[in-house]
């Protein structure tokens, strides 16, 4: 019960921020900053340093000695706070960035562009399934209109320019409708978190406190 009470008081303290920033909420902010920092350091040490480097190297040196190399290069990060040698810390960053920029190219292309386009240009007429045909046309139309809004300011071709004017407008409207959807979902996400905390306060904490007070036992 003590644990629940501590968690509940911290929850209440953090909630007081809605009313006004106060000493309790500031205390909690600083507490969480310290805890998160500590959490990050400990987990990096345990899950990456120990697990991916230290233990493999010390238990089976012959198979894993190569891991010393990236670890030493990675240690160049320690130069970061010192102005004169700061550039050294860019070396490990450059290695990760270079490799993953290269690796990502083809995969971004295939997953985000090619497969997305495949999904868009599905056959616009599906025999015997009017509903599906209609859906495909809607998606195709939406993507074209919005992309035309994104990519073209003005088209220097009289016939196309007129068409572009319309697709642009449809594109904007379409986007607004989808932002509405996103807003609706965002409300649900945030409300869910609030409910989670309030349930904790009312049922798991106050509810239990009342039970204890009325002799219901721990």
């Amino acid at each position: 019960m003590l644990t629940t009470t501590i968690a509940a008081l911290l929850t209440l303290g953090a909630m007081s921020l809605v009313w006004k920033e106060n000493i309790v909420s500031r205390f909690i902010e600083h507490l969480i900053l310290g805890i998160s920092l500590g959490y990050g350091v400990v987990l990096t040490y345990r899950q990456i340093f120990l697990r991916l480097f230290w233990v493999p190297v010390t238990t089976d040196f012959a198979a894993n000695w190569i891991l010393i190399l990236p670890t030493l290069i990675g240690a160049l990060w320690l130069a970061q706070p010192f102005q004169k040698v700061r550039w050294l810390s860019l070396i490990p960053l450059a290695m990760v960035l270079g490799a993953f920029s290269g690796l990502g190219l083809e995969r971004i292309m295939s997953s985000y562009i090619i497969e997305a386009l495949e999904g868009t240009v599905k056959s616009l007429y599906v025999a015997g399934d009017l509903q599906k045909s209609f859906d495909h046309v809607v998606i195709w139309l939406g993507v074209v209109c919005i992309l035309s809004y994104f990519y073209f300011r003005r088209i220097h071709n009289p016939a196309l320019e007129k068409a572009h004017e319309y697709t642009r407008i449809v594109g904007i409207w379409w986007l607004m409708a989808s932002f509405g959807v996103s807003f609706g979902f965002t409300v649900m996400a945030r409300a869910a978190l609030l409910i989670y905390r309030i349930q904790f306060l009312t049922q798991d904490w106050i509810g239990e406190l009342i039970k204890i007070a009325s002799g219901g036992g721990m």
């Binding site: 868009t120 998606i139 993507v143 919005i146 992309l147 994104f150 986007l175």
Partner: peptide
Amino acid sequence: LMTGNVAAKRAILIGVA
């Protein structure tokens, strides 16, 4: 959600990609 929303989000994703 399955059509109009998909079209909008996909256009955004293609732009982002």
